[in-house]
Design a protein around this nucleic acid. Sequence first.
DNA 1: AAACTAAATGCAAACGATTTGCAATAAGGA
DNA 2: TCCTTATTGCAAATCGTTTGCATTTAGTTT
Lengths: 145, 145
Amino acid sequence: MKIHELEKRMKEAGFKLTNQRLSLLSVLDKFSETMVTAEELLTECQKDYPATNITTVYRNLILLEGLRLLHKTSDSKGKSLYKLVCSDEHHHHMVCLDCGKVESFDFCPLEELRKITERNNFRLVEHNLELYGVCSECDKKINEE
Amino acid sequence: MKIHELEKRMKEAGFKLTNQRLSLLSVLDKFSETMVTAEELLTECQKDYPATNITTVYRNLILLEGLRLLHKTSDSKGKSLYKLVCSDEHHHHMVCLDCGKVESFDFCPLEELRKITERNNFRLVEHNLELYGVCSECDKKINEE
DNA sequence: AAACTAAATGCAAACGATTTGCAATAAGGA
DNA sequence: TCCTTATTGCAAATCGTTTGCATTTAGTTT
Ligand SMILES: [Mn+2]
Ligand SMILES: [Mn+2]
Ligand SMILES: [Zn+2]
Ligand SMILES: [Zn+2]
């Protein structure tokens, strides 16, 4: 989703387009392939609009999540990571443990999973499939050292 | 894994079998099918050994994790959840959003996933597949209301 | 069985990420 | 330009978790 569309969605939802918000959207867009922390977002936002405050970043992240424009997960130590949602079809992610980059893939074993849950009379609501490893670029860097 | 085996493993690793530890192991064993918080574990431990302290619970959870006897995840709000590891083969879980109960299933699309990661030159390190929904028992309860 | 010693504990205090209250500011409509 | 309300910055609170330190205990050695 491009930045103009994001701004439009916020506006449509009745939110004001403040400098802090515009800055955050542009930063999130810049990092759209990588999971990033609130702190990292703040640092970037401040390059662009120095007065930005961490509280405001958090408040706007919550808001974007509510609009289903933001994907939130947490790292192994429980710290939250954010990334704009991808706009395409249902898919899953492979996440680089080194640089945080996220790549998508379309494969989903949902049919198999349904068979399993039905067999257990388990009412499936959602599922989570993620791959963790080292992306080709980081792997290359590591080998060069 | 039964409780006697757990005690043995701790002893073999050179740790003392204190009352607090024995209590925690027995509580974890009691909850072996459900993800529970440190606070819930404390409450149970205290029924059994009232002097138990939350700090001690945390320290022993860290220790059990180190011994690979404990499975740790976090809930949607980032709070940690714990559960004894299952002893059987590689498998995945379906987690009840209502009662927290965890059921296992053996299916794993690992071969398909490998194809995908190889195609991307992504060095796969680990993967995570979890189903969330409502277990048959909770579903029954809900329908009865 | 008493003494010993390192490991384990309890308590209080620190911690770090996130959230909240409140007064000041700014966006966008009138 | 003025007005109203949402939004912000700041400081303080919160919450789960971790740490420092003095005290206690398990398991070993006399
Ligand atoms: Mn995606
Ligand atoms: Mn399991
Ligand atoms: Zn990478
Ligand atoms: Zn259930």
